[in-house]
Amino acid sequence: MSFSVEQLACHPKFVSSLRFLAEALRDRYDSGPRIARLLASHQRWLLTQTAYALHLEYDPAVPGSGLTVVKLRDVITQYRVASRNTVLSYVEELLTYRFLVPVPGVVKRPRRYGPAEVSHTAMISWYLANLAALDLLDDGNRAATLATHPELIDLAQPRMARRCLETTAWREPPERVGLFLWTEAGGLVMDHLVSRLDMSTEVDGRVNLGRIDTRAIAAQFMMSRTHLQRLLRKAVDGGSLGWYDESKKTHLWMSRDFLDEYCRWQAEKLATVDEAFAWAQSAAACAVSEQ
């Protein structure tokens, strides 16, 4: 049985699970900043997951299937995630950094692409981290199963990506969550804040995040300090965050209602990750039994 959205959002260990996930994603950023940034904003997350799914869905019997600029553009613009020009720029960036490569031997148009080995490894790493976060809630063995059978990603990822793209509650984050997630490095900032959560410090609906060094955070995530300060100021104005020392702006708290909003949004994705992986295991077992 996989978790439902409601079960995740209300689970007493869910905040701890999200903190673990945030720390895992931050570690991944530290080991490979450029590729980690492909999932650092919500728009890029949707683009990247959809592109990878299209690649895995390639069927030689279906004309135009697989990852092409035209196919990615059509799917993404259908849900108004990004403009055509943004999709084109995104693909060009992936090609420039060799995260995406042309499929060998394919010369007809539209050109079909596939992920480089580093991109494939990064996607498995991302899925493993999410499964491990789910395992913390029920002492499961999802992550160990994927590590042993990495081919399950070929079944699970497209189903997860499609369902996330189709789910309005995930595709369109709540306004205060979207303030972080729709900006270039806002997802990294949000992960950093979540990784600092200590629920034992909650008093009057405020959770202490400790001392915040905006200069160090901006440098780590390759963003301007001015942009980071503007982002934090908007979050403070919206009641999501607040300063214990307003004049110095060094010690930050997160409001419990904003945290609950964020948890509910993350539950949408993690429930889909869980369901897709359970389905992939079942599908793989059926395929084996039919042989």
Rank of each mutant, 00 (worst) to 15 (best):
E6A: 14
A9H: 11
C10H: 14
H11L: 08
F14T: 01
S16H: 10
R19T: 15
A24F: 15
R26S: 11
Y29L: 05
G32E: 01
P33N: 08
I35P: 09
A40H: 03
R44M: 09
L47R: 02
Q49I: 14
T50C: 08
A51S: 07
A51Q: 05
A53F: 11
H55D: 14
E57L: 15
D59R: 05
A61H: 13
G64F: 10
S65D: 08
G66V: 11
G66C: 15
V69C: 09
R73K: 11
D74Y: 08
I76V: 12
I76T: 09
I76Y: 06
I76C: 08
T77Y: 12
Q78I: 06
V81I: 13
A82F: 13
A82D: 09
N85Q: 14
T86D: 02
V87F: 14
E92S: 04
R98Y: 04
F99D: 12
L100Q: 01
L100D: 01
V101P: 13
V103E: 02
P104V: 03
G105N: 02
P110Y: 02
R112C: 15
S119M: 10
S119V: 14
A122P: 09
S125F: 15
W126S: 04
W126L: 13
L128G: 10
L128R: 06
N130E: 14
N130Q: 15
L131V: 12
A133Q: 03
D135F: 10
D138L: 13
D139Q: 01
N141P: 05
R142V: 10
A144F: 05
A144D: 04
L146R: 01
A147S: 15
A147I: 15
D154G: 05
D154W: 15
L155S: 12
L155E: 03
P158R: 00
L165P: 09
L165E: 08
L165K: 06
A169F: 15
W170Y: 07
R171A: 14
R171Y: 13
E172Y: 14
P174Y: 00
T183N: 04
A185H: 01
G186V: 07
G187E: 01
D191G: 13
H192L: 15
L193K: 03
L193A: 11
S195F: 12
S195E: 01
L197W: 08
D198Q: 04
S200W: 07
V203Q: 05
V203P: 05
R206T: 03
V207E: 06
L209P: 07
I212G: 03
D213P: 13
F221K: 00
R225I: 15
T226S: 02
H227L: 09
H227A: 11
L228I: 08
R230F: 07
R230I: 05
R233V: 03
D237V: 06
G238T: 06
G238D: 12
G239I: 09
G239R: 01
S240R: 06
S240N: 01
G242E: 00
W243S: 08
W243Y: 05
E246C: 04
T250I: 09
H251M: 12
L252F: 13
L252Q: 04
W253M: 06
R256N: 11
F258A: 00
L259N: 03
E261S: 06
Y262G: 05
R264T: 08
W265F: 08
A267G: 06
E268L: 05
L270F: 10
E275K: 07
E275N: 01
W279V: 01
A280Q: 02
A280T: 02
A283Q: 02
A283T: 08
A284W: 14
A285P: 08
E290G: 02
